[in-house]
Amino acid sequence: MVSVYLMGFYVLVLAMFVGFEIISKVPPMLHTPLMSGTNAISGISLVGAVVAAGKGEGALAIGLGVAAVICGTVNVVGGYLVTNRMLRMFRRK
């Protein structure tokens, strides 16, 4: 099993390098949309939340799961929509 965990670290380290590489190319003008866009992405815990809420294993687990689903969905839906709203404002005349 240890190798599965170690693979996770490989993925993490490589993804961080990719992250720094692509994000350093985003111009300061778009730093607010970058922030709210990555913010929406961090709502991906939703993947874990739906499993927790959908297993149907006891009221507490379901309650926690539903709370997590709500937080994650607000984060994802609100984050993407507000980012879209901002990005559409950037126009060249």
């Binding site: 996770g8 993925v11 993804a15 990719v18 994000i23 991906i44 815990s45």
Partner: peptide, 29 residues
């Protein structure tokens, strides 16, 4: 970073990757 840890909890690479992207973005800014 929290998302990346959740990725390890669920053994799900897409969470590890996106968590790292968001973490890197936040650190860069």
């Amino acid at each position: 970073v929290a998302v990346s840890f959740t990725g390890f909890v669920l053994t799900n690479n897409v969470l590890i990757i996106t968590g790292a992207l968001v973490g890197a973005s936040g650190l860069f800014l």
